[in-house]
Write a protein that binds this DNA or RNA. Structure first.
Length: 204
DNA sequence: CAGTGGATGCTCT
DNA sequence: GAGCATCCACTGT
């Protein structure tokens, strides 16, 4: 699949969508980066905001797929997900890190740092560099690159080996290997998966 | 390098 | 009042 991704791409289980997002281009407001790290969250997953059902904060997770779920983290940062699967499932993929591709000067200005490696490494840093905030919660992904909205575009070629590892910063259901990243990438956040990590193809 | 604590807002107990 | 899907500044090796 090549080109901007829409609702039909995300209307599948997050276990299928998440690894395919690695290597895709995330673009918004003149800045762009290649997705190198995501995590998936499901309703029957104690670490997920959808765990307790469609309550106020996580209601977007239970809406149509292909929309952004943006929430505030630790009262300070924003984090951005894309809703997956069918309406009512409560499934989403958190975008945790991208490799900067364009608009780097804008990213540096927003982040107030010139440390290239830290511009978009981590979910809070990424949203700051992209100026993604809570006003985008519930917004559908845009279908064309010229749009004002957030666009996710599939690459023509695969990015390289996708590995899976434990999710970052959670305590409940922490053993699930639901974090997907580009093997060996320096743009990945947190403790990076050990040497090669676990190949995504090896696990169903 | 590792570890600690503060900032700050919202949800749950 | 506790606990976060975090980040940064600071400390001590």
């Amino acid at each position: 699949m090549v080109g901007p991704l829409g609702a039909e791409f995300f209307a599948r289980p997050a276990r299928d969508v998440a690894p395919e997002l690695i290597g895709c281009l995330l673009a918004y407001g003149g800045v762009a980066g290649t997705i190198v790290e995501v995590e998936r969250y499901e309703q029957w997953d104690a670490a997920s905001h959808s765990f307790r059902g469609p309550r106020a904060r996580a209601r977007t997770m239970f809406g149509p797929p292909g929309r952004l779920y943006v929430y505030r983290s630790y009262g300070v940062h924003w984090c951005v997900n894309v809703v997956c699967d069918a309406v009512g499932v409560g499934s989403a993929v958190l975008i945790r890190a991208v490799a900067p591709v364009s608009g780097v000067a804008m990213m540096e200005s927003r982040r107030r740092t010139a440390v290239r490696r830290d511009l978009c490494r981590g979910p809070g840093r990424l949203t700051q560099a992209f100026d993604i905030t809570g006003i985008l919660d519930g917004a559908p992904l845009a279908r064309d690159a010229a749009s004002d909205g957030v666009v996710v575009t599939a690459p023509e070629q695969g990015p390289g080996p996708v590995v899976r590892s434990r999710r970052i910063g959670i305590s409940r259901d922490a053993d699930r290997l639901w974090r997907y990243s580009l093997g060996g990438s320096p743009w990945v956040s947190g403790p990076r998966p050990t040497p090669a990590g676990e190949p995504v193809a090896a696990a169903a």
